[in-house]
């Protein structure tokens, strides 16, 4: 296999705001390969966004981060890179779509020229070629009458169309990785279905690598090849989407999936709940971070950090960080 397009190893990220410091990401490794979609799943505060965007220098305002470990893209080490170089590498290699299209689009500029500028700057196109590329991207992302929309301002587009324009903008520089941070969360159900279908289409046509950051299991099920389940800054479980979503091992993954309604299945109840709340991440405790909410926790869970252990999987190893379930259900897979 060729080198992953984006990889981090042993990543630790501490976040500082004026009032608190939090260990948001605690020794996490992941890699995304060309042509695959990796879903990073977790609830608010799990560190999914920080883990994926932090090494690229994309952090919310007012937050300072302390980042350790390694992060590589395009054969370069991102951790040691100057902010200026990082910004230029990011612009060419990574396209990012957010929950709110207006955080990516400039409200003062027409849609088309914003796309063309990206294409000119990062894909090295001539102004005329950049314009043509922008129009064809608008068409590709399902925006009707792209020639007309090229000269529209963001406020002239409906919510669903803006979402599409933002996706077009993210693709304009011909990036190798598309990072989608909660791309469907704020959308209505029928528009959500449209956007998921569009992302699936882009993924099939482009062979682009996609990192999908979400808490929406439905979106994961539609798009992902591989899944990382993050809990309180650590990986609880990872593997192929089918393994993780249909044969979950970690008690957190099992709880999370049981709380998702599935009305097409007769057996799933979908309203089982995980008791309690995620832990206070301002203090780093030695054991498993899920122990306080876990129905299967034992004394050892509170003292020893569980390691990711292989429990199966074909081409993609299926790994979970729960020695208790692995022992009780005889899941350890040593080959």
């Amino acid at each position: 296999m060729s080198e992953p397009v984006y990889a981090v190893e042993d990543l630790v990220i501490d976040l500082y705001t004026p009032s608190v410091s939090v260990r948001a990401v605690d020794r996490v490794s992941f890699a995304i390969n060309a042509g695959e979609t990796l879903a990073v799943v977790g609830e608010s505060g799990s560190g999914k966004t920080v883990m994926t965007l932090g090494p690229l220098g994309l952090m919310p305002e007012g937050v300072t981060i302390d980042l350790r470990g390694s992060a590589r893209a395009a054969g370069k080490d991102l951790v040691k890179m100057s902010p200026k170089k990082l910004s230029s590498l990011r612009g060419g290699q990574f396209g990012v779509i957010f929950q709110d299209p207006m955080s990516a689009l400039n409200p003062m500029l027409k849609i088309g020229p914003q796309l063309a500028e990206q294409a000119r700057r990062f894909a090295g196109l001539s102004p005329a070629a950049a314009r043509a590329a922008a129009v064809s991207l608008l068409a590709r992302t399902g925006i009707p009458d792209p020639e007309d929309r090229y000269d529209r301002y963001p406020h002239e587009l409906s919510g669903g169309m803006l979402q599409r324009a933002m996706i077009a903008l993210a693709l304009a520089a011909r990036p190798r990785v598309l990072i989608a941070d909660e791309p469907t969360t704020a959308l209505d159900a029928t528009v959500q279905a449209q956007i998921l279908a569009l992302l699936r289409q882009i993924q099939n046509e482009d062979g682009i690598a996609v990192a999908l950051i979400t808490h929406d299991i439905g979106a994961v099920s539609v798009l992902a090849d591989r899944v990382i389940v993050l809990y309180a800054g650590r990986i609880a479980e990872e593997g192929s989407a089918i393994d993780v979503l249909t044969s979950p091992v970690h008690p957190y993954t099992r709880g999370l999936l049981a709380s998702v309604p599935d009305f097409r299945s007769d057996t799933a109840s979908g309203t089982r709940e995980i008791p309690g709340l995620p832990p206070d991440q301002t203090r780093v405790l030695p054991g498993c971070r899920f122990a306080d909410r876990c129905p299967q926790a034992e004394a050892s869970c509170r003292t020893k950090r569980p390691v990711l252990t292989c429990v199966g999987g074909n081409e993609v190893p299926h790994r979970a960080a729960c020695p208790i379930v692995i022992r009780d259900e005889g899941l350890a897979d040593n080959d």
């Binding site: 439905g218 994961v220 099920s221 979503l245 599935d262 009305f263």
Partner: peptide, 11 residues
């Protein structure tokens, strides 16, 4: 129909 199934085999 717009609600995806949490089962990728169904999707």
């Amino acid at each position: 129909s717009a609600v995806p199934s949490p089962d990728p085999r169904v999707e």
